[in-house]
Write a protein that binds this DNA or RNA. Sequence first.
DNA 1: TCAAGTTGTGCAAACGTTTTAACAAAAGAC
DNA 2: GTCTTTTGTTAAAACGTTTGCACAACTTGA
Lengths: 358, 358
Amino acid sequence: MHVAKQLNKGVISMAVVTIKDIAKAAGVSPSTVSRVVSNHPRISKETSRKVKRIMEEMGYHPNVMAKSLVSKTTQTLAILLPRPAEELFKDFFFGELMRGILAHSTRAGYDMMLAAATSPQDEDDTISRLVFGRRVDGIILLSSRVDDPLIERLDKHKFPTVLIGRSEGQPHILSVDNDNVKAAYDATHHLIIQGHERIGFVSGLPNLTVSLDRMEGYRKAMNEAGLSVRPEWIVEGEFLQHSGYRAMSFMMSLPEKPSGLVVIDDVVGFGVLHGLTELGYTVPEDISLVSFNNIALSELATPPISSIDIGTYQLGYTASQMLIRRIQAETIHQNRVIIPHRLIVRDSSVHSISKRNS
Amino acid sequence: MHVAKQLNKGVISMAVVTIKDIAKAAGVSPSTVSRVVSNHPRISKETSRKVKRIMEEMGYHPNVMAKSLVSKTTQTLAILLPRPAEELFKDFFFGELMRGILAHSTRAGYDMMLAAATSPQDEDDTISRLVFGRRVDGIILLSSRVDDPLIERLDKHKFPTVLIGRSEGQPHILSVDNDNVKAAYDATHHLIIQGHERIGFVSGLPNLTVSLDRMEGYRKAMNEAGLSVRPEWIVEGEFLQHSGYRAMSFMMSLPEKPSGLVVIDDVVGFGVLHGLTELGYTVPEDISLVSFNNIALSELATPPISSIDIGTYQLGYTASQMLIRRIQAETIHQNRVIIPHRLIVRDSSVHSISKRNS
DNA sequence: TCAAGTTGTGCAAACGTTTTAACAAAAGAC
DNA sequence: GTCTTTTGTTAAAACGTTTGCACAACTTGA
């Protein structure tokens, strides 16, 4: 006969029911209980029923930590926002991305951790804790810093990682992205087709690949059309309304002003719109405008903002898919997945559409 | 002499350095290494230095799961968005709230888990896993459903929980909230002072306490001013632009229309604005508008939307503070903390301000 | 010089699981 | 009726930490 060596009781905090308690109550061994929990095939129907009933009665819940310790898997992912990304919280973009990520990961049975680093030191600590401390099984990296040291580090350790964006250095890392060059090309081309020749670009921070790519697409379209790109028509800033506003204060004080603008993000676009209106310009009559991301409010701007829809939800959903496939060692078809974009034309870039039914 | 019983090597996956490896390499016991890691006072300077050097050399990272298992603490919190809250992702509000929560929790050394339940079953599973599976130390509940069964459940098990919002049933649970009655009162009163007598209310879903509270404040202000509240001037919907738009389609088809509107959320406010504009009304000349939450884009609407700033960031920051205090068993001064609000008056509710410098 | 601290370290149990190897019992195969 | 296979179960080791207890080696204080 088997006698328990320790008694779990007497502790102050609520007595927690463990697998051993169930085993004892059911008159079976802990291994059997464990097998019942994990639906092992070699457990008799009868035992299974009995054990399950007792688990129900006694309110058993498996301890995730103990399980993780032995199984070396946590069923948890992390979204890591590197330092300069905090501003993303301020963007609708982020919420939509999260929706996509969570939709898939929840379905696949993974929990999600959210880590926002505020300093490089912080970033290191976070990585140490989450990755090397074996707290998560994989990471979704929300960064498109040109040469992110994090990417290299994670890649070197073969830690399952998916990048949302693009890395200059590590081309073989898993990533989901848009074809931002083409997207910006399309946006610019759209303005060119409308007859614009003086087109400016309100960009994001220059150390983000998304800024570089969109810039490249803008340049490409301009060059192909034989239009000149004036350095003073290119302004860099953050992904905040203020950047757009400031960009206009500057650009509209130039002797020669652009008549069309490609703007890196809708929120910035709102700022641009605000700046222009305040300076007495009308959109699209004086200045036409196309921006990126197609956040929910773009269509409610005055005038509604033309925007490149980058499939934000899909971006997140796909990132989660790739990561979990990678973790479960399924074959991955492509290292890099490109989510298609499409231009949503609204009043901010089109003269001809009659302005509302006023 | 002490001989290792098992050899960690030979595994396919990268050899992970454990406390035992360090111990062996440093010629001390695992307990000593553990104490070095946790800065135990009774460790000699010399040993500490030596062990630390070796940890550095061998690339040691403590296994969080093992640590949690014995310490019964995970240094992790979870934000739980109950089912109908997914739409919150679509609101700037959520990002700002997250910023506040993360700012504090990161500083306090806690990781954050994000769980969005999509079905009631899902909700149960999530709770089981995170709470009863001892995966997190505390929960921030983002719900103001009138009688949330979750709250009761968590409360019954004495699990550290902070509610952002208010619960009808459990008045003694920890919570952070605004004085939404007063906030709505202020918003309504502001319109009344402007001379409005026919004031409508575009509300949120009626099972959310935030909707109820703001409704109450609206009613109170109306009653106090001796103004009548017409049932058809009250419309309920979700926290989405569409709701605002639809509300206007309906309200503006009434024989007697309101001249002022209190709107539950800025995003809805955008929809309201859009609807009104499309129907040929001007704001604030025909209809005045005040809404809630003061998201970043409110001031960039046309016209800029008057809004009640509810201190969203503070709301999150405070929630994290209270929760961590609760977990660490520090004394909690108040069960319920009210974050002050303030009305930001913009053009959408004020005739007299000259419209821009056009 | 001796009793009484103090300091630094090690042993071993514990945390709550999973899983390998072993084996008894039952079922098939002939 | 024996031999082989299948089925259901268990014991025990392992996962990587923390921590109470024990104890040896120093300090102190008289």
